[in-house]
Nucleic acid binder design. Structure first.
Lengths: 246, 246
DNA sequence: GCATACCTACTGGTATACAACGAGGTATGC
DNA sequence: GCATACCTCGTTGTATACCAGTAGGTATGC
């Protein structure tokens, strides 16, 4: 939308995006530690914009700082992801309710319907493409409900969950299921059947959550092994029995 | 909990709180413009921690920056507040549902019950005190439900709504109503009657929202008149019919 | 060999200096 | 009188210099 009006903060924004990408692409692994100077060199900027970027990332839950002891990428906290999934479910169910109460429901839902109602042979088979599409489905569901603030919060949660969802979606089994379930949910909303739609949505999210539950640990160790591997305290040691907490 | 471990960012934190207080206490009015240097002088710090504080406030929705043109306190946007109220309702209703499904419900709710179940003659009459208490009721309701992330989001929304709720609560009529309604809601939750409790909670929030709807504009102009009054573009002109958007 | 105390190197926190850009006033041409 | 071009000043954006505190290695005493 807005393109030219805001030119400021070019560097800080770029650094922010760079670091975020590094995290999402597992060039920076959960638990990795780094200093501001290090990151400044890495990005070619000075400490000032780097710090600004890091503070933003900190507030968004991706990194954390120990006052005089450096920064680190936040280690995976599965309990935390579970909570995020719960909040996501709550928000999307609320969106479904609001959608079912809309006047011009059919028109509003038309774009989504045409996307997910395609016949089987026209479905997208690309895995990461479907991941994007799936994210888009849920985001649009909420956005269409019309509450801007709710949309913003949901978007934020989606982003935070993206990093683990990237570890999933290797098996295409869920691709067809995703199409089917999305389509069914939309149909049910179209018939203004609030509770059935909510139940289906919950089950759909639950399925995705379960996939993630199964796969994350294994994939993460994989990603670690392929990474630089110079950090020793990134995660609770892999089954070495030296977990500190319970 | 943690007290000594994190000593850093003392200044930035202080400045953040100072500015936030200024906004909440209407020493800085919605629409007021200021520069970083100005704020640095005002707080006695240098620009660096001031900027950090301002960025935090920006992300939280209290101020906004025009790239090379200074900062301003975000003007009131009542549509935005409406949206926040909606999200708040969604979250609290979800919390009620989760509470009703808790095992040791009676124990969990005990603290809240003893607070709001007091006989009439022991009720707090102090107006701003009740505002705090009311906020606390809703926060605790969500917190008790057990989802940390949901609690954090709700807390953030509560804070953002606080600034307009401060303009309300001048009439004590709602004080008794608040006590009565809170107590009734808790009782209903205790009996695990999900939907009735949610309906009551919605109505309760709606009442508060309606109070705020009636009173804000008048009170805000009042606050403005008492303030410095050196800004001309703080608000949509009072009924001059020059609203830009629809 | 071990514990302890010191010391160094590096960390983030803060202040300041410099650069680039924009808004708004002012002068100028008509 | 009015429009336009320019120029100045103030703004944020960025880089750098300085400060304070901590962790961890090292040397020393036992």
């Amino acid at each position: 939308m807005i393109s030219s009006p805001r030119r400021g903060k070019q560097l800080a924004d770029k650094v922010y995006q760079d670091i975020k990408d590094d995290i999402f692409e597992f060039r920076l692994l959960p638990g990795d530690r780094f200093s501001e100077n290090e990151m400044a060199q890495r990005t070619g900027a000075s400490r000032t914009p780097v710090r600004e970027a890091l503070f933003r990332l900190e507030r968004e839950g991706y990194v954390e700082v120990s006052p005089r002891n450096g920064w680190q990428v936040k280690p995976f906290d599965f309990h935390y992801f579970e909570e995020l999934y719960d909040v996501r479910t709550v928000l999307e169910c609320a969106a479904v309710r609001r959608l079912c109460e809309l006047e011009n429901l059919a028109d509003t839902l038309q774009p989504l319907m045409s996307l997910w109602g395609v016949p089987e042979d026209q479905r997208l088979r690309d895995i990461s493409g479907v991941l994007n599409l799936d994210e888009n489905f849920h985001s649009e569901l909420v956005r269409t409900a019309g509450n801007g603030e709710m949309t913003r919060i949901h978007q934020n949660i989606t982003e935070r969950l993206r990093i683990i969802r990237r570890l999933d979606f290797t098996k295409r089994a869920r691709i067809d299921a995703t199409y089917d379930e999305h389509h069914a949910i939309l149909e049910t909303i179209l018939h203004r059947r609030v509770e059935p739609a909510q139940i289906m949505l919950k089950a759909h999210i639950e399925a995705s959550r379960n996939e993630v539950r199964k796969i994350t640990l294994h994939m993460l160790y994989e990603a670690r092994r392929q990474g630089s591997g110079d950090t020793g305290d990134a995660l609770p040691a892999p089954a070495s029995g030296s977990r500190a907490g319970a």
